[in-house]
């Protein structure tokens, strides 16, 4: 059995790619809870959320040669994005002195509203990874063909 390891350099790659995709996840999560105050709103449209999630999964597949690293990147950027969304959701209470709007179920409310969305982010991200890898392979094939045509 082959052990797939993640080296320090791979973690850096995963982190950099996560920083590219996490803002979209953060925005969509926040927007799903408060579509009336966010700009530009997706209006709780799950299909659009899925397509955007797939689009932002593409860099993870495009810049990662190994599929396990790409999938890992998807999980890392969803986690980072979700944490950023929670910070944005808590901004009036974390950074300002405003009353908590739903004191009893503060975090649970956010989780409850976005649980389906998280699943969609994971699925969309994996689809995006596949699309990214297909694009990369196609691009590399094109590059190789051009190099060999010059040699002839």
């Amino acid at each position: 059995m082959v052990q797939l390891s993640i080296r320090a350099d791979d973690w850096k790659r995963i982190l950099v790619l996560s920083l590219i995709s996490a803002p979209a996840i953060a925005f969509m999560s926040f927007d799903f809870v408060f579509p009336n105050v966010s700009t530009p709103s997706l209006d709780k449209n799950l299909l659009v959320a899925f397509l955007v999630a797939a689009l932002f999964g593409t860099p993870a597949g495009y810049f990662n040669r190994r599929t396990d690293h790409a999938i890992m990147t998807v999980f890392v950027y969803i986690t980072i994005g979700y944490v950023i969304a929670l910070i944005a959701y808590s901004a009036p209470f974390l950074f300002y002195d405003f009353e908590v709007i739903f004191p009893g179920l503060y975090i649970m409310f956010f989780l409850n509203m976005t649980v389906i969305l998280i699943m969609l982010f994971v699925f969309g991200g994996i689809v995006g990874v596949i699309v990214g890898q297909v694009l990369r392979e196609s691009y590399e094939r094109e590059e190789t063909a051009q190099v060999f045509s010059r040699l002839r």
Binding site: P23, F34, S38, A88, Y96
Partner: peptide, 13 residues
């Protein structure tokens, strides 16, 4: 977008 939306949310609160 997330910064602008969070600031709007703060303004509403």
């Amino acid at each position: 977008a997330i910064i602008a939306s969070a600031l709007t949310y703060v303004s509403v609160m």
